[in-house]
Design a binder for these strands. Structure first.
Lengths: 226, 226
DNA sequence: TTTAATTGCATTGTCGACAATATAGCTATA
DNA sequence: TATAGCTATATTGTCGACAATGCAATTAAA
């Protein structure tokens, strides 16, 4: 279910993680103000700890802060989600290319094993695959790129942002089985060490997701409060 | 010379900028430890301010921090620089593509004006173009992408890192005139609204830079201290 | 009535002190 | 002598209080 180890040591660490999940999962709504005093009592820690946590959220682009005014959760515009997907297309395309070059045979085996599990679950129950499965697949390819800059950027930056947008804009949508086929083709290209093709397929895969989202946005025109 | 406005308001802001430039310009050497008390007296501010500044540097990937141990400037491995250039290739390629689609006519005119100035300075004095000119060119294209995620990622994240690596690994190298020709071709593609070509040319442009750097790294094998 | 200034309050920014943790040096024991 | 445990010290993490700034309500003047 969860992918990365959880090295939460200091109080600021825990508060950061708690705050982030509370925001990403939607318990703290987009655009709302983050009062330091309020959060301080809510999480039972000092204001300094809250300030540190907020600072980190700012650097994740989850929160915006203005000097002497305060911090707010970012406003969720549909355009912002599109922009995020464009960045994903670029970075994950590169990740797929590098993965084709650098993944170890063991990593490739693991990726295929994962896909077999997904195939089974798609046949049976369908719905579970959705979120976690998709994320797992992408994570492995990102890790497989063996490029630490890329890994950090995606796993502790962009991915949480994307998740927040999708949750709060109500984009839990299906597109399951077709996406699964695309996953298979990408894995195939990586196994064949075909970097060019892997990149192209990954980019196309994410472009499809983006178009899927754009379609949903246009059909249900319900903008959240500014 | 400088590109972005300087919205330094609070003391932590200024300290952050000061610390960053001191690191990027090499006055604080890579791998060295950042003692909070020491920096506190050096910059004449409280430890809390220093901690805030360091936190921001951590989120820029310029500094690494371990809980209860301390913060160090990142170690500069040649591999790290290569990784950075791979990310640049990906993101700036996308930026060029989006710029071809989204740049306003005025922005395109400005870009061409800039190139004419560069042409003149290359003919005359040569050497000036080097750093600032190159950065200016790339900045305008990034801004021209009109993708805020991309803009933020590059201008306040990756670029400072690249600069730090180049300064401290002694990569101030030439490659001036050929790079200028590549700039012209990229600008041409953008003016023609040829997104595909613009992306490809930009990626190739950065790939050349990376190969140039790899070449230098292999010829002069002087690794900094671990 | 409307607008401008002032005053008071709430929130953020900064500071110094205390608590918790890690590193180095010393001591004792095998 | 070497190693394990302990102690002392230095560094980081956390806290509460004070200073500075922004915002809103109230008041005064046109």
């Amino acid at each position: 279910m969860t992918h990365a180890p959880i090295p939460a040591i200091t109080a600021a660490d825990k508060t950061f993680y708690n705050l982030r999940t509370d925001i990403v999962e939607g318990r703290i709504t987009a655009g709302s103000k983050l009062s330091e005093a309020e959060l301080s009592t809510k999480y039972g820690v000092s204001r300094a700890v809250i300030r540190e946590a907020i600072s980190r959220l700012v650097s994740c682009h989850i929160v915006e802060r203005k000097a002497n005014i305060g911090a707010r959760v970012v406003a969720l515009t549909p355009e912002g989600l599109i922009e995020l997907y464009q960045v994903r297309e670029s970075l994950e395309g590169m990740a797929a290319r590098l993965a084709a070059q650098n993944m170890t045979p063991a990593q490739i085996d693991d990726l295929n094993t994962l896909l077999e599990q997904h195939a089974a679950s798609v046949k049976d129950s369908q719905s579970y695959y959705q979120e976690a499965g998709d994320v797992d697949f992408h994570y492995r390819i990102i890790i497989g790129s063996h490029n630490n800059q890329l890994i950090t950027l995606l796993t502790e930056g962009i991915y949480h942002l994307v998740r927040m947008y999708r949750v709060q804009l109500g984009m839990a949508g299906p597109r399951v089985t077709t996406a699964f086929a695309e996953h298979q083709h990408i894995a195939q290209a990586i196994a064949n060490r075909d970097a060019e093709l892997a990149e192209m397929l990954m980019r196309r895969h994410i472009t499809y997701s983006r178009q899927n989202i754009e379609h949903k946005l246009h059909s249900s025109q319900t903008l959240p409060q500014a």
